[in-house]
């Protein structure tokens, strides 16, 4: 379980996040929606302890992220918004390096890599240097790298960005499998249908605040709109405006 309590984050005068509270239960896939600059990435960065919150606390399975960042990180598999692969390592070497950094047993690394390479259809690129990878190939490698150690919970920043249909489906299956295994999955996306398809819950973030939280149908009916997209646009625009008008 991931629990975010009254988190605020300020960069100078800019309020990136303002009193955000959120709980993600085990076995739940939560979609995080927000415009560019709404605070999604900041929230992700706070969750992995790379940024320290100005106020509030975050705990992962009861472990405080600020106080025990390494313990918290061990429980997380994270795909940040930058793939940041090592160009002169092959896809497999990139994945195996992170497996070692996560402290996996040497004997377990190869089978884990093999499983993900098969699952994400990476067999043709596994032994190639990451230098010439397409966006999709980079995403797949970064995704495999993020979850190779079998983390308790998964945070993904726009995981299906640039993936083709086949791979997107594979990612979806992967997330469903994680959910079935009782893990928290939090993923941010700009793709409404993606969120509608696999999320149990949708959280809309605008101007550093959570403006909606519930199932897709709850959010849609609450705003009185016909679709999630319209609901999202309405929520974002209103709150953005609100926020600027009354800081």
């Amino acid at each position: 379980m991931i629990e975010i309590k009254n988190i605020s984050k300020r960069f100078g005068d800019v309020h990136a996040l303002d009193n955000v509270s959120l709980r993600i239960n085990d076995g739940e896939i939560v979609g995080l929606l927000g415009l560019n600059g709404a605070g999604k990435s900041t929230l992700m960065r706070l969750l992995v302890g790379l940024l320290a919150p100005s106020e509030g606390s975050i705990s992962i399975d009861g472990i405080d992220v600020v106080q025990q960042p390494d313990a918290a990180r061990r429980a997380l598999g994270v795909l940040p918004d930058t793939a940041g692969l090592y160009k002169r390592l092959t896809a497999r070497e990139n994945i195996a390096y992170f497996a070692r950094l996560q402290g996996m047993d040497e004997a377990a690394i190869k089978p884990a890599c093999d499983r993900l390479i098969e699952l994400l259809g990476m067999a043709s690129i596994a032994e190639r240097y990451a230098d010439g990878f397409s966006l999709g190939e980079r995403m797949k490698t970064a995704l495999a790298r993020a979850i190779v150690h079998g983390p308790a919970h998964i945070l993904l920043d726009e995981p299906t960005n640039g993936l083709d249909v086949i791979t997107t489906r594979a990612v979806r299956r992967l997330l469903q499998a994680q959910k079935a295994a009782g893990k928290c999955v939090l993923f941010s996306s700009h793709l409404m249908y993606e969120v509608e398809n696999i999320c149990d819950r949708v959280v809309v973030i605008a101007g550093g605040r959570i403006v909606a939280d519930g199932t897709v149908s709850e959010v849609v009916s609450h705003t009185g709109c016909a679709s999630l997209e319209e609901a999202f646009v309405q929520l974002s625009e209103i709150k953005e405006h609100d926020y600027v008008a009354h800081p």
Binding site: R45, V48, L50, P69, D70, A71, R73, R74, L76, V78, P80, T82, A83, G84, L85, Y86, K87, F98, L101, Q102, G103, A142, R145, A146
Partner: peptide, 14 residues
């Protein structure tokens, strides 16, 4: 430059 520090430091390694 290639922005690989973020994924790297997400690992539980000091």
């Amino acid at each position: 430059e290639r922005r690989s520090l973020e994924p790297l430091l997400i690992n539980p390694t000091s």
